[in-house]
Structures are given as C-alpha cells and as structure tokens.
Design a protein around this nucleic acid. Structure first.
Length: 898
RNA sequence: GGAGGAUUAGCUCAGCUGGUUCAGAGCACCUGCCUUACAAGCAGGGGGUCACUGGUUCGAACCCAGUAUCCUCCA
C-alpha cells in the first residue's frame, strides 16, 4: 500500500471495478434469500451521462449495495431505451451529414443505419455508469427494442386492442414538425415566450368602403381580431364573437373576408369568447388550434389545414406556399401591413408548447392516430397508490398523482417514425384495419371476421390469401417509446414471454424504483397501470423521486445553457467516491438540488480523511506487554457507533439518504477521527498495546462496511489491506456484512459529551490567552455532580495537554475558571488572570442564567401550565430550575472570590 | 385560471409527535496553528426578528387563517 498523504482514486477505481466484475459480485440468480430488486430507469440508448443520471444512479447503487451487504439477494437490472424520437432525430442528422435524406431511402435501409448507429453509440452511457461504480447485474442488460421486449410490446398492443382499449381515430394531436410525428401531451413542454400580438382587420362583407390606411374605419365596415399567429388566417373558418357583446350586435349574421385571400367566412356567436380579451373577436381556425377545433365541431365549420407535416404552408394557404410557418409569419405581417389590414402589433407573453425531444414548437394538428383508452387502466393504478401498496417518496407527490390520474386523457400511442415497434395493424383495400402480430395472422383474421368468408371453400380461401398477401399493408407508424417503457419491470424478467419463469416469480414485483418526478406520469404511473393490467400485481413497492439537479443559481442544467459539468470529468477530478458523496450530501428526497462542485470537493476531502486515518492506525507498532490504557475510550466509541448506526438506519428506512450520509460522515470524521483516534493514539514513535490496536482495527473495519454503499472504492481498497488480516479472494467489502446495531451505554455517552465540552473549554482557555498547545497545563476539578471524572482524566490530559489533573474540594484562586455542567474547573496560569475580564465574563453568564431561571419560574408558577402539561415536561422544568439555581450560586461564589 | 410545495445563519438545507439550555448541520467567513495520520488538515470563534400579520395553546420554527415572494405541475 502506498504511503502517500493523499488518496489517489484513479487506480483504485479501475482495479476494484474489474475485480468485482471478475468475481461476479453484481450478478444475481434466484435463490432462497430474500430478493431486493431495482430496475434502472433505462436511459436513452444514444444518450450520454448527465448530472441527473449521476444522482439517480448513485442513489440506486447505495440502496443496492446496502441490501447486498445486508444479506439480501440484490439485483439491479440495467438497460437502455430505444427512445424513438430522440434516436431517430440523431440518425436523421447523421445521414444528413452524409448527404442522405431520409425520404430518399427505404424504411429497411433507414433501420439498417439506425441499428448501426445504435451499435456504435448505444451503451456509452452504461460504460459511464461503471465509472460511477454502479453495481448493476450487467449480464441482465436489456434493451427496449430487442426481440423479446418488442414482442411484449406488440402482444400488449394486441391484448389491449382486443379488450377494446385501443382505437384509431382522427384527433387533434400535438404535432412535432421537426420530428414529423405526433407526440403525447406529456411530451410537450410549455415555456413562456415573448411573442407579438397582431391586430388584424377583416373587411365586413357587403360594406361599401374599401379598407385602406386612409379610409375612416368603423365597426360597420371592418372588425379587428388579435392573434399571435397571423400566418394561420388562411385557415380561418369563421370569426366568433360573444352574443352578449354590445359592440358587435349589428354584425350578427354577417360575413367577413379573410384578408389577402378574400375568402368569405361567417361571423358566429358563442359565449366561449371572452369579451375583454383582445378585441373581443376571435378568429376560428379549427385545423390549427385545439379550442378552435372544438368550437368548429360545435358550429359545423370546415377544417382547413394549411400546414405540411414539416410546418411549411401547403397549397390550401393560397399564398406563401412552401414557406416555413415562422418565415410565413413575418412575411404575412408585412403583406398585411402593406394591404392596410394590420392595425397594430403589441408585445405579448404567452405559453408555447415545445417538443420535449426536438425542442420544435408544437403544432396542434388533426391527424389519424392510434389511441389507448386510459380511464380503466388508471383506476387500479390510482387505487394502488392511495391504499399505500405503492409508496411515493416523498408523499407530497401522492396529491399530484391523484390529480393526474383522475383527469387522465387517452394516450396517443402512434408515432410517425420508423425507429420503434411498428404498429401491428394491417390494411386491406378499404376494409377496417386488422390488428394481428404477423401478416399471415392478419390475413386469417380477414377471413375469420367475415361470416361469409368463413364459409368459403378452401380453394376460395387460398385464392383470397394469395391476393391479400400481395395487397395487404402494415401500418407505417411505430409506437410511442413509453409504450415499451411501461412494460419494463415485467419484460426485463421475461414476464410476457414466459409468465411463470423463475426470475419473474422471484424478482417481481421489484422493491424500489428511483426516478425523477418529471416522469411520474409518463412512466411511473403507466408502469403501475401495466403491472396491474398484465400481471395483476404492482411493479414495485417504493418509488423514490429524486429532485432535479440545478446549477447553483437554481437554473435547470441544460446543454443550451452550458451549465452542466461533465460527470466523467468530475469523477476524474474528485474520484467516484467523492462525486457520489457530493451528489448525496445535498439532495434530500424530492427537493431539487443546487449542484455545486464544492460538494464534490468535500466528498474528495472526506475520502482523504479516511485514507489518512487509515495511515495512522496502520503505522502503529504493537508492544504486547503493554496494558490497555484506553478501555474508557473504546467503550465510549462502541456505544457511539451503535448510537450513530441507529440514527443512520432510521434515516435509511425513511429514504433520507442525504441525512444517513451526513450522520455517517460525522461519525467517521468527528467521533472516530477527531475524538476516538486522538484519545487512543500513542505518543510519537511509541508503540501501542495490543488491545487498543485490535479494537481500533475492528472499529475501522466496521466503519469501512458502513461507508461502503456510499464510497465503494476506497472502502474496498482499504478493506484488503493486511492490517485486517488475510482475505480470501471472495472476501470483499462489497459482500461483507453490514454492521448491526449493538448496545449503547447512555450514561457513558452523556459523560463523554461533558468531557468533550471540558476539553473544548481548556482549548478555549489556551486560545483566548494565546497559550501554545505544546505548553502543558494543570487542571483542578471541583466536582459538584455525579460525574466520575477519574475514568476520564487520562483522556482529558491527553487531549488538552494537561500535565496534572486533580480533584479539589475548594475553588482555586487566581486561576482561569469555567464550568461544564455543574462542575467547576480551574487552570492555574503563570500569567496573572485579568480580573476585570473574568468579572465581565462571569457577570454575563450570570445574567443569562438569571433570565433563564426567570422564564422557568414563570412557567412553573403558571397554574395552567402545571395543570395541563405532561408530568415529564413539568419534572423537566423543575430540573432546569434546580440546575440553574445551583449554577447561579456557583457563579456568585466565584464572583465573590475574585 | 386550477392544484401542490417552499420561505430558518452569507449559501445549501435539517429541525420527524408543539415541550431538554432549541434555534441546529455542512460549506463559506474570522483568529491562531505546516502540533510527526491528514493544510484536501488541526484548534477556537462570530453569525438568526425561523418571510409578514393575526389566531389556537399553559407553551408555536412546528397547528390554523390571511398577506407577500418564489418554485413546480396541470389548463
């Protein structure tokens, strides 16, 4: 082992990760132990690790490692998601660079490129997770588009279709013009955007006055609407006004002309229109706005769709054909202005939907899509959370969850993409589509679903099959990625292919799921639905929702802001253990975390602290003839360890990982290093007795085990040092027994706190008087309490550099004095004490105590308090009173003696 | 517009059943130390009207109501 004063993580991390892999410690097979299972939220196959993953996976690894050490059969299933839109967008971009356009190649050719891309870049993120120390069972790595998982997707589609839960229909969907596909409501991100509100004049039909810039305008010859989307006026089907709006009563039943194209449209009445918004006149564009679409249905208006799939204008627009919607917006504003139809333009802030995957502005668009009915699926999934079968942590998410589940809308599951599971629907001539797994099955279904075809002779059937074979076509669309992710906990254990298999029976339902609250509905809710629907069981018991990682200014980390540190860079700089500690240190469950590299630095420093504590213990020479002078210190630390472990376990139970870590950190740094080791360490170059060494080594090993889930690498490294004796090849920290809570001697712990206070006071005496720590002092103790200082004197002498400590019965004059608890301490000094300063200090303390006593007295003399408060509270107040009174007396004596 | 959450030290946050000398931790800051495990360290210290206003209670950072500010989700 190196004796460097600095811990060097790089070599250690590489070495132990391969060792763990080599010895297959991460691998799990069903056995008689209790399983503990986590399925990873599968990251995008082409993605790279970001800070959110770091947090997420650190938490999962801590949980899985702890469970493993606690004797459970821990299984963490990793994998990746095919992420249709994101991946397809990347492949399209890659092809574009090669000069290939998606529309020039076939579906098969495209998929070939996509798979190549996936093979090349897929799984980078999993390699990165290894650097973090993630102890996933890599043998179980799954991918949502591998054959079995795709099969599960297709089969569950067919299952739901047969139940009548899947239907095809024309609906207004969120159209992503960059991805050229529909996306679900959940994939639309609303952002506030600075826009322009254009006020546009429409000429009233039949009015004689031509509308120009110079002509006086009245509401008889024109009306003005306000819109943020002037490029859609060509798609207008009507103008709508509120029937109660006095300003426009004379226009009821009239018509207006759409500017520039002069198409005549009616003025309709509906109290949907808010009179005080804009001008009180609303242009109705059913093809390009959800609300307008509903309004159009109600008033039987035609739907005029002027946009191509890529967001450019089509020939129905009549003008600006082929222009992109945003360019068209600018151009049309100019054209309207030139034609005298643009009254004014105002700045306006509004919410605009963006595609989660491509960041393009979402276009509401009517299209023919496949939908899954959600109402029936949602009910049991809501119930499961409300009755506590599935726990959301923190609980505050239950409300949000309920709100969403009670207002759930049907799920648009088709996507106009090629990368993904193709919808198993088949079209033959003008018949209703058939849903079937294969072409052959589809053809059989075509025959079987029509009674008269069923009656056909075998010969006729054969002829039909031949014809159908040639003309039947499969739906071009693929399914929403979430339609495969929602099956993840089931399909990774082959629960669809073989529902009674050993793995599935053993690992499912899984235990904990760790994920971001952003995908509570996208994914978590739907997994619960799928679990209940397809297996009748919940997919997991606990859902730990992490916060969002933000930068220290509170901004979300994003590529465009460039405020996200490179996780691998952080690991290189601070070590994986350091980064893990840094991430957890500041991340209470469910609260966002303001990430600051300083936390990683703190983590690295902690690793270094452990390293150096180790160097100390390792350096001790043992002299077996020596007696053990440290029984008290050893007994104390044993109790303290148990006390801390109780607290740590309590925090773990409540998924307060951050607090569990802080408690561990303090136990190691403060109690073990700063107190225990200082108490027991022999003087420079002196040997240590065997008992002290044995106890210290044992403590150290317990500490390594306790730390392992948080800091796997450094603990494994130290665990194998010869200090702990021989280890066989499978004897590793990763599978060592996690410490269990032992006895804690309360009285001992209490006394130790007093002793720590005493040592601090002595150090303070030095500090305020600038006495070097090297200069030994004498200590006189006047004991007024029950504390048996004899047991502690050795420790006090050592820690505070006291040459002689004595119990005295009287105050010592001319010495620096202070109190700890009820007891008085005196340190004779060579220099004269500053009587005035001493007086001031004592007076101040006296005043505080008198005030305190007064408030306690007030309570105790309050009859209602004595009547209502719990007896133990009252007793407590009496104790406080007695304590304060005795201290006051002591201080008064001291003052008198000065 | 609807729902949920937050507001405690300069920063990030604990404070769990209202009651201990309860106002805490880490970081940052100040002072002094390169004291033979560790300067990535050690010792000591300063720093708070618990957002505001009321209420409930013997007792409120904690419960209730209102106000302000901020965040998130949904429309």
């Amino acid at each position: 082992m190196s004796i460097s004063t600095k811990y060097n993580p790089q070599e250690t991390e590489e070495k132990w990760y391969s060792y763990w892999l080599d010895k297959r410690f991460f691998h799990s097979e069903p056995d008689e132990r209790e399983p503990y299972t986590i399925v990873i939220p599968p990251p995008n196959v082409t993605g790279v690790l970001h800070m959110g993953h770091m947090l997420n996976n650190t938490i999962q690894d801590v949980l899985i490692r702890k469970a493993r050490m606690q004797g459970k059969n821990a299984c963490w299933v990793p994998g990746t998601d095919h992420a249709s839109i994101a991946t397809e967008a990347k492949v399209v971009a890659m092809l574009k660079e090669k000069g290939i356009s998606k529309k020039d190649i076939t579906r098969e050719e495209f998929l070939k490129y996509a798979w190549e891309w996936k093979e090349k870049y897929g799984g980078i993120i999993l390699e990165q997770l290894k650097k973090l120390g993630a102890s996933c069972d890599w043998d179980r790595t799954r991918f949502t588009m591998e054959e079995d998982l795709s099969d599960a997707v297709i089969n569950s589609f067919i299952h739901l279709y047969k139940k009548g839960n899947i239907y095809r229909g024309i609906r207004m969907v969120n159209w992503d013009p960059a991805g050229k596909t529909a996306v679900s409501d959940e994939e639309v991100i609303r952002k506030e955007v600075n826009q322009k509100l254009y006020y546009i004049r429409y000429t009233v039909a039949g009015s004689e006055l031509p509308v120009t810039g110079n002509t006086p305008l009245t509401t008889d010859n024109s009306l003005t609407i306000a819109t943020t989307r002037p490029e859609t006026i060509m798609a207008d089907s009507a103008i709508c006004i509120n029937p109660n709006d006095e300003r426009y009563k004379h226009l009821h039943g009239k018509k207006v002309f759409v500017p520039l194209i002069n198409r005549e449209i009616p003025i309709i009445l509906d109290d949907y229109v808010e009179m005080d918004f804009g001008t009180g006149c609303l242009k109705v564009t059913p093809a390009h706005d959800l609300n307008d679409y509903e309004l159009g249905l109600k008033h039987h208006l035609p739907v005029i769709d002027i946009l191509n799939d890529d967001g450019s204008l089509n020939d129905k627009a009549e003008i600006l054909i082929g222009e992109d919607r945003f360019i068209a917006r600018k151009k049309i504003a100019k054209m309207l202005e030139e034609a005298g139809h643009l009254e004014k333009v105002e700045d306006y802030k509004s919410q605009v939907g963006f595609s989660e995957r491509t960041d393009a502005v979402i276009e509401p668009k009517l299209s023919l899509q496949w939908f899954s009915k959600m109402e029936e699926l949602a009910k049991p999934a809501l119930e499961e959370v409300l009755n506590g079968e599935v726990k959301l942590i923190p609980e505050k998410f239950i409300n949000t969850y309920r709100h969403w589940m009670e207002n759930v809308k049907d799920w648009c599951i088709s996507r106009q993409l090629w990368w993904g599971q193709r919808i198993p629907a088949w079209y033959f001539q003008h018949e209703e589509p058939v849903v079937a797994k294969t072409k052959a099955e589809a053809i059989e279904e075509l025959i079987n679903r029509v009674p008269e075809r069923r009656e056909w002779s075998e010969e006729s059937k054969a002829g039909f099959r031949k014809q159908a074979e040639e003309f039947i076509t499969q739906d071009e669309d693929v399914m929403d990625t979430w339609f495969s992710s929602w099956l993840w906990p089931i399909s990774v254990f082959d629960g669809f292919k073989n529902p009674d298999n050993k793995d599935f029976n053993y690992y499912y339902p899984t235990n904990d799921l760790v994920t971001a609250p952003e995908i509570l509905f996208f994914w978590v809710a739907r997994m619960i639905m799928a679990g209940k629907e397809f297996t009748g069981k919940k997919p997991f018991t606990n859902v730990y929702l992490t916060g969002i990682v933000r930068d220290k200014l509170g901004r979300k980390m994003s590529k465009s802001l460039g405020n996200s540190p490179d996780p691998i860079g952080l690991i290189e700089q601070y070590g994986a253990d350091g980064v893990r500690v840094g991430m957890l240190m500041s991340s209470p469950a469910g609260n966002d975390l303001m990430f600051d590299e300083a936390y990683c630095e703190q983590g690295r420093n902690f690793a270094n602290k452990i390293w150096n504590a180790f160097r100390l213990v390792k350096g001790w020479e043992v002299e077996t003839s020596l007696p053990n002078p440290n029984e008290q210190a050893i007994a104390w630390f044993e109790s303290r360890f148990s006390e801390a472990l109780t607290e740590i376990e309590h925090n773990f139970k409540q998924y307060r990982l951050s607090e569990a870590l802080v408690a561990t950190y303090k136990l190691v740094w403060d109690d073990f290093c700063a107190w225990y080791l200082e108490m027991v360490k022999p003087a420079y170059q002196q040997p240590v007795d065997a008992a002290t060494r044995a106890a210290s080594v044992k403590f150290f090993e317990q500490i390594l085990r306790l730390l392992h889930p948080f800091m796997p690498f450094i603990t494994e490294e130290l665990y194998h040092d010869e200090l702990f004796g021989e280890r066989s090849e499978m004897e590793c920290c990763i599978v060592a027994d996690y410490p269990t809570v032992g006895e804690a001697n309360e009285a001992l712990l209490k006394e130790a706190e007093l002793v720590k206070g005493l040592v601090s006071e002595i150090r303070n005496v030095r500090n305020t008087r600038q006495i070097s720590p090297k200069e030994a002092l004498e200590l006189n103790i006047k004991v007024n309490s029950e504390v048996s200082y004899d047991q502690w004197l050795n420790i006090v002498c050592k820690l505070a550099n006291i040459s002689k400590a004595e119990v005295v019965s009287d105050k010592v004059a001319g010495a620096a004095g202070f109190m700890v608890g009820k007891d008085e301490f005196f340190i004779p000094l060579s220099q004269n004490i500053d009587v005035e300063a001493e007086k001031e200090r004592l007076t101040k303390e006296l005043e505080y105590l008198l005030g305190f006593l007064k408030s306690v007295d007030a309570k105790l003399s309050n009859e209602r308090f004595v009547q209502n408060a719990k007896p133990e509270i009252i007793q407590n107040e009496r104790n406080k009173k007695a304590d304060a009174e005795s201290k006051i007396a002591t201080i008064q004596e001291s003052l008198a003696a000065l």
